[in-house]
């Protein structure tokens, strides 16, 4: 439970952080430097020596990465915003309750007080809570590197198991969520793995007039949008009928806590619950 030796730095500006991230032996990012955000996944991995980065660049003291604000109909959340801050934000609760609900479901109080939204999406754990909701909300991430910024959808960002579109030298700067104009209803339904607090299956539903967005976490190698369910709902199917197809064709995860078959089954149950609740919350 003792990590290997590593260097630690706590830069005071984003520029400095990017410089240090790109500070490999040949002056380019080589993967031996890791960004430390909340550290809720990285630090345990390091203590088990499953991860052994040579350098950690801590973003905690980088100014301007911790904010929640609305700008022209878009919610901007800085990468270093903690889960607790998202969960308890009056703005998020009022304008984007699904994200607050997802944040409130993450881990436990201690984790929510330290873990960050940027760290969570960058780690891309296949059972993390945020991705399902971010997918249902059609959220985007903004990545920054010394070369500049780029913005992409969360869906494109999540490539595979703990694998994202982040290039070496890039940092997740913020998450943006387009705010609802109409009165869509949203809900996040999660079966909790009792040891880790991760989702065995988590389904986020966002249902408005003429559209449905369903994000799924825990079921497959990465969080994804269940377009087959969305299409059925948009075609007028009821919750149970639509939810029933959520695991079709999915290569479901299997572990001690839930076999692949059980996960598939539970996904249909939780999808139906999320959909029903989302519909009930339409306004």
């Amino acid at each position: 439970m003792i990590p290997q030796n590593f260097e630690y730095s706590s830069p005071r500006s984003l520029e400095a952080a990017l410089d240090q991230l790109a500070g490999g032996p040949d002056g380019s990012a080589d993967g031996s430097t890791k960004i430390l955000a909340g550290g809720m996944s990285l630090i345990p991995l390091m203590k088990l020596r499953l991860a052994a980065p040579e350098r950690l660049v801590d973003l905690r003291r980088v100014p301007g990465l911790n904010y929640i604000r609305e700008e022209s109909g878009v919610l901007h959340i800085g990468a270093m915003t903690t889960h607790y801050e998202v969960e308890s934000s009056a703005l998020v609760r009022a304008k984007c309750p699904l994200l607050a609900e997802a944040a409130a479901n993450i881990g436990d109080v201690q984790v929510r007080n330290v873990g960050t939204i940027g760290g969570s999406v960058a780690h891309a754990d296949p059972a993390a809570d945020y991705p399902a909701s971010l997918l249902a909300l059609e959220a985007s991430v903004t990545l920054v590197s010394k070369a500049g910024e780029r913005t992409m959808s969360v869906e494109d960002f999540l490539v595979d198991t703990m694998t994202t579109a982040l290039e070496p030298g890039e940092i997740v700067r913020e998450v943006t969520v387009p705010l609802e104009k109409s009165g869509a209803g949203t809900a996040y339904a999660k079966m909790v793995q009792p040891a880790s607090g991760f989702a065995i299956v988590g389904v986020a539903a966002r249902i408005g007039e003429g559209f449905a967005r369903i994000g799924v976490t825990g079921l497959a190698s990465k969080a994804y949008r269940a377009r087959n369910v969305e299409a059925l709902l948009e075609g007028g199917a009821d919750a149970a009928t639509a939810a029933a197809v959520i695991a079709e064709g999915v290569d479901a995860n299997s572990d001690l806590h839930a076999s692949a078959d059980y996960r598939r089954h539970v996904a249909t149950v939780y999808a139906a619950r999320a959909i029903r609740q989302a519909i009930s919350r339409k306004y």
């Binding site: 345990p44 088990l48 793995q193 009792p194 040891a195 880790s196 001690l256 806590h257």
Partner: peptide, 11 residues
């Protein structure tokens, strides 16, 4: 021991 950490052993 495949429940060798608190991430899998549910106290």
């Amino acid at each position: 021991l495949i429940t060798g950490e608190l991430m899998d052993y549910a106290v």
